[in-house]
Amino acid sequence: MTSVTSLFSPVEADLQLLTENLKGLIGAQHPVLYAAAEHLFSTSGKRIRPAIVFLMSRATLPNQEITPRHSRLAEITEMIHTASLFHDDVVDQSQLRRGMPTVHSLFGNRVAIQAGDFLFAQASWYLADLDNLEVVKLLSQVIKDFAEGEIQQGFNRFDTSLTLEAYLNKTYYKTASLIANSAKAAGVLSGLPAARIQDIYHYGRNLGLAFQIVDDILDFTRSTNELGKPAGSDLQDGNLTAPVLFALEEKPYLNVLIEREFSEEGDIETALALVHESSGIQRSRALASHYAHGAIPHLEVLPASESRQALARLTDYVLERLY
C-alpha cells in the first residue's frame, strides 16, 4: 500500500516548514484560543490538503523554486481546513478527532466555535495579504461553501428522500471545494493559462469527492480505534451518506428506522446490519473509484515531473484506504 510519507517525499521539506510555521501564524493573544488551535495543529494529521497545494505548486513550476506566496497558500489552506474541523466537531458532538479529544470536548462548545471563527478570520487576513484578487475569490468561495455544506447537512438530517445528487453537492461544499480551489489557486499563482487552471480545478474536485466518499465508506467498515471517532457515527447522527442512500433502494425497513431517528432499542444496530447486507458499500466503492480515476486525465496538461507523478499516485492512495 502507498504510504503518505513516500507519496509526499517531493514536498517533505515544505510540509515540515509548514508545521513549524502554523503555530506562529495563529497569533492569538488569548491563551485559551491559542491552546485550542495549537491542540489540533499538534495532532498527527496527514496534511493532505497543503501537500496537494505544494505538489501542484511544484508541478506547475517544474524547473523553478516555488514562491513564498505558494507556501503561504498551503498554510492558509490548512488553517481553513482546521477551522472547519472545530465547527464540524461541535455540530457532530464528536468526542474524538484523529484519536485525540476534540477541542470542544476539552474547552467547551463556545471556545471551539470562537477558535474556528478566529482561524477563518486569520486565514482571510493572510489571504488578502497575498495581494491576488483571483486567489482571494477562490478561497473566499471555499469558506462560503463550508457554511453552505453545514447548512445543507443540518437540514437534511434523517431525510430519507435525500438524493445522491444532493449528497454529492454537500460533499463538494464540505470537502472537495477546498481541495479543488486551493489547487486551482496554486495554478493561478504560477501564472498558468486559464484552460490549464480549470483542469487543475477538476483534478481537485474529483479527488476531493473520491476522498470524502471513501471516508463515508470507512465509517461503516473500520473500528472506532482505526477511525479515531465512533464507527457508524454519521448514520446515528442522521447524516445519510452514499452507502446508506444506496442501501435505502434495497432495504425498505431502513427507511422506517431512519425516519424514527433510531428511537427504539437496537435500531442503530439493525440499520448498520442492513447497510452491510445491501450492496451500498460496494456501489459506494465504485462511485469513489469513478471520481478518483476521473481526476488523473486532468493532470496531463502539466509537464512530467516527480510532483505530477505524486499527484497521480494520490488517487491510488485514496482508494487504497478502503483495503
Score class of each variant (00 low, 15 high):
F155C: 09
P193I: 15
F211E: 02
G154I: 09
A185K: 01
L138K: 00
D199I: 08
N169I: 15
K144D: 04
A210Y: 05
S177W: 01
A194C: 04
K170F: 03
E134N: 07
G154D: 05
I213H: 08
H202I: 04
Q198K: 15
L164W: 06
N156T: 15
N181K: 15
F158E: 04
I197N: 01
N169A: 12
A166T: 13
Q152Y: 07
L189C: 09
S182G: 12
E148F: 04
V135S: 00
D215E: 10
S190D: 04
Q212M: 12
F146C: 12
K174T: 06
D159R: 12
N206V: 13
D145M: 01
I179Q: 06
S161M: 06
E165D: 15
D215M: 09
T175K: 05
A185H: 02
L168W: 08
Y201W: 10
Y173K: 14
K144C: 07
Q198I: 04
I179D: 07
L192K: 09
F155G: 11
T163P: 01
Y203F: 15
V214T: 13
G208I: 12
K144E: 05
G149I: 03
Y172L: 12
K137G: 07
E150A: 02
K137R: 14
L139F: 09
I143K: 00
Y203G: 06
I197F: 02
A176R: 00
D215F: 06
I179A: 01
L164K: 12
E150Y: 01
K170W: 03
T160N: 11
K174P: 05
G191N: 12
A147T: 10
K144Q: 11
V214M: 10
L138N: 00
T175I: 14
D145A: 03
L168S: 04
R196T: 13
F146G: 01
Q152R: 13
Y167W: 13
A195T: 15
